[in-house]
Design a protein around this nucleic acid. Structure first.
Lengths: 103, 103
DNA sequence: TCGTTATATTGCAATATTACGATTTGGAAA
DNA sequence: TTTCCAAATCGTAATATTGCAATATAACGA
């Protein structure tokens, strides 16, 4: 019943900015301009572009991304100078299913 | 996209104590002893019994219940001296569906 | 009316969350 | 190496959340 990871995931999605990030990353090509390095879909979206769209300072964006990564909902991938983020669809499906049974 | 009610509902379920309340109220007869007034299923569960099971002070329990009621997930019903709480299954289904599409 | 019981409200402390500026780290280019 | 850029971390302020004690309100019963 008392599942710390589940609780961390619920807290992770209980924020409008982080919900927006998750929403945009469902279809990166639709929401972000092409990147020089890293494929939008394969590798994910550069933290810089996400922060730009959020209109939040860089450390704040980094913090939100960390919360989503720590919750297991996003996968980070470092390529050269940048960190790209994509959804972990499997974990997200599992989370939704847990919400379905536990809420 | 920016839906204040949806955000309030996500915050409401992002707490272990409130998750427990929602879980117990799925099958009140399984988790609570019979009540003198008010049918466990029809009317809901008395705040006293919920607080007892939570092992939290009465004002804290009342606060958690208020957050769930304000989010539209619980329905309160005052009968005589007591307030009974039951799940608003319709709103909860709608919330789950919104999580399904928005997360 | 008075006392008791159940719930709600208020005030407050401890902690968590969210935001930012400043600084550090890691990698790439000059 | 030095410089530059992206990201991460640190320190801190503002605000929100969570808990409790004290008190108020509402409903009942004697």
């Amino acid at each position: 019943m008392n599942n710390p990871e589940f609780d961390r995931q619920l807290k992770a999605i209980a924020n409008p900015h982080r919900l927006m990030i998750l929403g945009w990353l469902k279809d990166p090509a639709r929401h972000f301009r092409p990147q020089v390095d890293g494929d939008l879909v394969e590798d994910g979206v550069c933290a810089l572009l996400i922060g730009e769209k959020l209109s939040l300072a860089q450390p704040t964006t980094a913090q939100h991304l960390k919360i989503l990564v720590d919750a297991g909902l996003l996968v980070p991938k470092r390529i050269r100078k940048w960190t790209f983020y994509r959804r972990d669809e499997e974990r997200i499906v599992t989370l939704k299913s847990a919400i379905g049974t536990q809420v």
